[in-house]
Amino acid sequence: MAKTGTEVVKRGMAEMQKGGVIMDVVTPEQAKIAEAAGACAVMALERVPSDIRAAGGVARMADPTIVEQVMKAVSIPVMAKCRIGHIVEARVLEAMGVDYIDESEVLTPADDKFHINKREFTVPFVCGARDLGEALRRIAEGASMIRTKGEPGTGNIVEAVKHQRMMQAQIRKVQAMSEDELVAEAKNLGAPYELLLEVHRLGKLPVVNFAAGGVATPADAALMMELGSDGVFVGSGIFKSENPEKFARAIVQATTHYQDYELIAELSKGLGTAMKGIDLNTLRDEERMAVRGW
């Protein structure tokens, strides 16, 4: 009688995260700080993206011990990352009872052609996208939530802004098209026609659409909400700042009250130094994570 892993249940889980902040954590202690600050979920990792960048080499799924410890430490949902196309890492995380899997470009891709067929899983997936075509290809594979890719681990919001603006502009364009124009647009975007038709009718993606990749301050989080994001992922931005507890609380509040500028001014006072950040012009092409995935 009860049906698990349905589209409604998987997408619905992401609906419950809206207006919230999902924080990267690498220890159970950090997970508790995130929960107490009001995070709506945590992403359990071995290293935050800026450390993955610094460490170099192949980045893989986290040690299951860390994921398990985080799951025990908090009552909010726990997400974890698997490599693009790594079906077995995803199955392992599902078997452990992780609440959401991020098939993530932050890790080194395991398959250079195919993403995971996420429809076959009971656990829901979130995937990164730079534009509408990429978002709809991921949804066609069964992603229940989309986030911008941004440029992870840089503390630089410019790429996330670019990706969210691109997606919103393409959605507005598709919304204004006649149905016969949509077939050509589907070809143009490399997106399934049926999903494009849904976007045309809804005026938004058929799943929740978060911002990620470069959020470092409360104002960054509010900016992404202003641009039409449903919520925010913060990776290195919290636990690489001078005062993680304060940053976490301030970013949660700025996300809820993203149009209350006096409040954001208050929240931003005396926070200490944000994570250092990287000018993207100094990154070599092979150091860019956003270009991973297709």
């Binding site: 249940v9 009872g97 609440d99």
Partner: peptide, 15 residues
């Protein structure tokens, strides 16, 4: 009782 039916993979639809 919070999360009393289990984690997300146990989430379900029923009549």
């Amino acid at each position: 009782d919070r999360n009393s039916f289990g984690r997300q993979r146990e989430s379900f639809e029923a009549e």
